[in-house]
């Protein structure tokens, strides 16, 4: 039987996208705070502009992760094929990758919120 699944050559890029956004958010938050404190505010200066930048980065990161997670969720909600026992068809892979993308998106969202948590409590550069 001809396999009509459009995802026959599906790649893994989407799977890695949400953790990549988390990693970029983590890096950018630390760089933003470090540059602000080292070059502008001084060792005990206010952190407010860096906190605003971290808030904006966090909103952007969570929005990106949500879009990716939604895509993953849609792919894993496809109806399972009848009589599939081994789950080794292209469609099964499609569903599995969608589910893994969704789970990694949830994990990345939690990690992003945890990383941004420090900015919620720290008010200056000390």
């Amino acid at each position: 039987m001809k396999n009509a699944a459009p995802e026959a050559d599906e790649s893994l890029w989407l799977l890695a996208a949400a953790p990549a956004i988390w990693a970029a958010h983590f890096l950018l938050c630390y760089v933003a705070a470090a540059v602000w404190c080292a070059k502008f505010a001084g060792p005990a200066g206010p952190l407010a502009p860096a906190r605003r930048a971290i808030l904006a980065l966090t909103v952007l990161a969570l929005a990106g992760i949500a879009v990716i997670g939604r895509g993953g969720w849609r792919r894993c909600r496809l109806p399972p094929p009848p009589l599939s026992r081994e789950f080794d068809t292209d469609e099964d892979r499609h569903r599995f990758l969608g589910f893994a993308t969704f789970l990694l998106s949830v994990l990345s969202a939690v990690a992003t919120v945890y990383a941004a948590g420090a900015a919620a409590f720290m008010r200056d550069c000390r």
Partner: peptide, 26 residues
């Protein structure tokens, strides 16, 4: 496996972060 550990760890993280400003005060 997910919700409860995330909430417990989140609460502990928030508590840990909340005491930082006092420890680093001038």
């Amino acid at each position: 496996g997910a919700v409860v550990p995330t909430l417990v760890l989140g609460a502990l993280l928030a508590y840990g972060l909340s005491i930082l400003p006092g420890l680093l005060a001038s």
